[in-house]
Structures are given as structure tokens and as C-alpha cells.
Write a protein that binds this DNA or RNA. Sequence first.
DNA 1: GATCCGCTGTACCGATCGGTACAGTAACTA
DNA 2: TAGTTACTGTACCGATCGGTACAGCGGATC
Lengths: 199, 199
Amino acid sequence: MADNLTGRGANWEARRRQIIDTSAHVFAQGGYHGTGIAELCEANDLGKGALYHYIGSKEALLVAITDLVMDEVIAGVDRVAPGTGTPTERLRMLGTEYLDILVRYPDHVWVLLHEFPALTGERATEFHKRRHIFESAVETIIRDGVKAGELRKVEPRVAALAWLGMHNHAYLWLRPGGKWSARDVATQFADLFIEGATA
Amino acid sequence: MADNLTGRGANWEARRRQIIDTSAHVFAQGGYHGTGIAELCEANDLGKGALYHYIGSKEALLVAITDLVMDEVIAGVDRVAPGTGTPTERLRMLGTEYLDILVRYPDHVWVLLHEFPALTGERATEFHKRRHIFESAVETIIRDGVKAGELRKVEPRVAALAWLGMHNHAYLWLRPGGKWSARDVATQFADLFIEGATA
DNA sequence: GATCCGCTGTACCGATCGGTACAGTAACTA
DNA sequence: TAGTTACTGTACCGATCGGTACAGCGGATC
């Protein structure tokens, strides 16, 4: 009997995941278009035949990398649903969740944020849909904060973009085992965003 | 007699600049590695011979695009030198300067922020040197603000990275003729960063 | 009118691009 | 042991890559 839907064994799944992770690292170094199939083969210590047996195509590999991150992001958004605290509390939680993903998957996130324009067709629309879920979650929380009188009358869209910019940008410098932990930085970001930097 | 140092006429200079701008737009659409020379030729309505007469090489074109932006950024930093106001005033000024550049050169900035890892050798080191000038200018202003008691005891490096993230990220959505002007957004960003979002 | 020179298109280069075909191989099953 | 199946390396595909060589063009200069 088939023990999964793909018709492939568990080994296949595990090896595929391994290839995705390794390739994410290579893409993060040289970029998607800048990295050739030959380079991926070498990094994964595989021939082209074997590689394509697992990945299907170069773009499918890119999709797998981005999906991995977006799955986590969407799960994070769900965990910070309405009713799990005040708007500012939820904003703090979401920031922590997001930076945690960023530290756990630095290469995958790098690829996601840098190369998503290379996605085509429905892969692209699917990605944009999920990104919109995340971004509008932030905006909605801020809007709720303003409505509740917890935040002053900021422009929710601009404030959300500021928040997203602060956090997204961390993919360039926040590293596991670095000087600051994801939790540290998330707290400092939240303090800055909510309280400001004024003495 | 030679009327300039390059030995090329003024027409050459003007046409070159035009090619740089057009190519920046193409790169911003398809990425540096994702765009072929043939595509650049078509966009500029030029043969390969003519194109190379002006640009020298593909990477030289990338350098020209990034230099154009960095020249402006460094000039902006110089204009906000110490003694031109309090730290918070200078931070507001720098934000306005930066977002203004971002709106005036949306394509060039896109290329800069996305493709600078493609720079090699001393072109790369030169770029990093100039980027460091900008980033440490932000950090120094914040440090001065804390020292002067104008800002609370934030971690200057993290706060600077938050500030840079907010502003850098705007290259993805801030557009000339869009809903918000660079000045509007700069003010809102500065208010958020300095005063926070709390009511 | 001859000469010169900035500029331009065309033809071409070797290398690499992403991807496919297929023959093998090793391990497991009947 | 015969057959099956998942896996893998090799050879190869046409297309495109970034870049070069060069002949020719037109307009300015003498």
C-alpha cells in the first residue's frame, strides 16, 4: 500500500528536503539567476539526473524554498489571531515570531526576499496572496490599536510598512549565534515602534 | 584640444547617462543576472557594438548605476554634518534626504539594493566602504542623541538598523506620483522612530 | 575631394545555460 | 533467481550567455 500521496518513499522526502536546504544556501550566496544547475549539483554532490529526480526544475526548487518560509509565516499569523491579547501585545508577538523564522531559516528567507520576482505564473500569484495575508495582518493590528485608542492616529498603511521594513531588513544582519538573539531584537524593535526612541 | 578628461565628447557622456538610466529600469524588472546583453540592446535600441562602446562591460554598467546613487547618498550625509542641528533634527533631515533619493532614482536604488552582491573585487570593497559611511552616520547620530540625553538608552547599532530597515524597505513601494510623497513618509517615519506609535 | 574619426551593426567566439534521454545499478520482492 | 522499482551518472540537446573583431557608415576637418 502507498504510505503517502506522492508515491515516493520517506527517504525521497528527506533527501529532497536536504537538497532544498543546501540549495537555499547556494542561492543565498550567488542569487537565483546567478547560480547554475551545475553549481547546485556540486553543492549537493549529485549528478544532474539525480538532482532533477528530486527537484523537477530550477523554479520548482525556488518555489519549495519560498513555500517553506511562507508556511511558517502564515502559521505565525494564525497564532497571533484576534483575541490573543491587546493590539500592541499581538504586534510584539508577531515580531518575535517573524524574527524567529528569520533566524531559523536565514538562507531561505534571503532567497525569498531577494528572488521572489523570479516566480512566474500562478506560483507568483499564490506567493503574493500569502504575502498579502501577512502584511495586512500587521496593518490590521495597527488599525485595531488606533481604533482602541491604544495607538495614536498613525497612517496604518505607512506604519505597517515601517514595521515590515524594520523586520524584513533584519535578514541582512540577524544571524543565529550572533551578538543579538531574535527575541532581544524583537523586543527592541517593538519598544522602538511603540514607545519611540525619545528619552 | 580635449574638452574633457575622458577624451569623449559631451554627446557621448549624455548618451551614456541615458543608457545607464534605461538599463537600470530593465535591471529593476528582471534582475542583473536575469537580464541578458541582448535585452539591454533592445531596450536601448542599440547593437552590441554600440552598447559596448558606451558601457565597456555589463559589470561596469552595474557599477555606474550604483555609483550614481551612492554619490547622492554620500552628498546627503555630508549635508547633515554635525553642527547642523540637534541629533533628532539631523536624523529627520537625513531621512528626508534619503527618501528623496529613493523617489528620484527608484530603478537605480532597486538595482543597488538588490544586486550589489554581484559586484566583485575592488568595486565591491569601494561600495562597502561608502555604504559603511552612510550606515555609521545614522548610528553616530543616534549615539549622539543618547549621549545628549535627547534619546533614551537604546542600543545604537540595533536602533540604526531599525531606522535603515524602515527607510531602505521603502524602495519597494514608495513611488514618485504615488499616494504619499517622500517628505510625507519621511516625517511619519521620523515621528514613529522618535516619538513611537503610542497614544 | 581626401582624410579622419566617432559611432554602429553584423558576424562570430567559446562557454555555459536549463533541461532531457537513457542506460545502468543496487536493493528489495515474489 | 527473475523481475521490479527507485535512484543516479553520462552524454547530449538547442539556446543563450557575455564579449570581441571588424568593416562600414556619416559627418566634420583640412
